[in-house]
Amino acid sequence: MNLFRLAGDMTHLVSVVVLLLKIHTIKSCAGVSLKTQELYALVFAARYLDLFVHFVSLYNTVMKLVFLASSFTIVWYMRRHKIVRRTYDKEHDTFRHHFIVLPCLVLGLLLNEKFTFREVMWAFSIYLEAVAILPQLVLLQRTRNIDNLTAQYVFFLGAYRVLYIFNWIYRYFTEPHFVHWISWIAGIVQTLLYGDFFYYYILSWKNNVKLELPA
């Protein structure tokens, strides 16, 4: 465990906690894409299949449980909670996320580290995570006044992957045979997708103006 990876995991944790607190306290999910939340729940479900069969560390197990619980809780809130579900911006959250699940599954079948069920699911989850933010970014472009918590959620979610890239660089130079092309390429694609969001987010933060993403 290196500092970049720990910082990455903590930033990822902060992003889901920020979102969960927002939804739980103000009972609103305005500006939040249910599709992105569903994709993330799928990412964790596919990636953490080895939760009970492959013990890495207490930290690893606890964090997996936290990510699984939080992502499914958020989906539950947005689908089932009688107050929260009414604040869901259904008509603007129209990204056809089925169109990204299938290609990621096919890619997972074609490009994986080993052709086993768990490895294919792992690769699928890595590809899916790289594009899971797309519905949320599209929704932000359509949302007039983006509330701070949602913007912070997206920012931390992007920041965690940037930190992971530093983690991979560090591990590449410190651990022999540490090569994970799948994570590296998908992680870079994922980070690039946040590119313009980061640009406008930092600009709005610097000029102290409301965040606006050009449509």
Binding site: H12, R47, S57, F67, E113, K114, W122, Y164, H177, H180
Partner: peptide, 10 residues
């Protein structure tokens, strides 16, 4: 060793 499938990262 099948080190590739022990994904130790989250």
């Amino acid at each position: 060793a099948n080190e590739e499938d022990d994904h130790d990262e989250l």
